[in-house]
């Protein structure tokens, strides 16, 4: 009798032989980028807002958000906690994706992939929703139009300035780690699509002779 088994499910000895051909390269690249994004985002924001000549600056990313007002830097403790969660989640997802990419056919590979592949996309979606919400809140509460990207000059409401006209130049822009995160999210989703194909292609035949009775 002959039967086939997939690499990673070798029923004979439980051992798995993984060759480079069986690596999910999309997952590998996505994992490396995820870990890179986590590291660089500690130093470089995803989105930066500048008011005046650096009078107020907001450096925003899911893993590190800080503000500076007239060269005095500060963080918001609640946002800091969310950042720590995001950072740990990003690292965990990156490591899980890295382990998965070398063992896509293993029984736990699917769990690792399921845990990690959507994390960068969810992070991006929540980040953009957060930014849009913040700009809408600034518009509603203070009447200030904050652009997501580009430059504008906002005039503060007169009730905030005791009747004086106060114009504030505001510039905002997405920084390169944001785009790196977009690429990481794309690669992780590609890894999910590639998963089926690679696990099928990696099938190996194990031929067993049935002992004659």
């Amino acid at each position: 009798m002959r039967f086939q088994t997939q690499c990673g499910r070798n029923r004979d000895d439980g051992k798995v032989s993984t060759s480079l051909a069986g690596v999910n390269w999309f997952g590998f690249a996505g994992a490396i980028l995820m870990l890179m994004v986590a590291a660089v985002s500690l130093l470089q924001p995803w989105w930066q807002l500048t008011v005046g000549d650096g009078l107020l600056q907001a450096n925003v990313s899911p893993v590190n958000t800080n503000f500076s007002f007239a060269d005095k830097a500060f963080t918001i403790p609640f946002v800091w906690a969310l950042n720590i969660s995001s950072l740990l989640m990003f690292i965990a997802a990156g490591v899980a994706m890295l382990v998965y990419s070398f063992a896509p056919a293993k029984s736990y590979g699917k769990h690792l992939l399921g845990f990690s592949y959507m994390k960068p996309l969810y992070t991006l979606i929540f980040f953009i929703i957060g930014l849009i919400a913040a700009t809408v809140i600034a518009q509603i509460l203070a009447g200030i139009t904050v652009p997501l990207t580009g430059a504008t000059t906002a005039t503060l409401p007169r009730n905030m300035t005791e009747g004086a006209t106060v114009s504030v130049p505001i510039t905002a822009a997405f920084q390169w780690p944001f785009w790196l995160a977009v690429v990481a999210a794309g690669l992780c989703i590609a890894a999910r699509f590639y998963h089926k194909r690679i696990s099928q292609a990696q099938s190996v035949s194990v031929i067993t002779e049935t002992p004659k009775a």
């Binding site: 906690a81 969310l82 969660s85 740990l88 989640m89 965990a92 690792l112 845990f115």
Partner: peptide, 23 residues
Amino acid sequence: MDKVRLLLILLSVTITVAPTTGV
């Protein structure tokens, strides 16, 4: 491999809850 799945769920919950609870 339900243990892996359980471990990952536990990890997700811990990572999400612990920093906020700490703060």
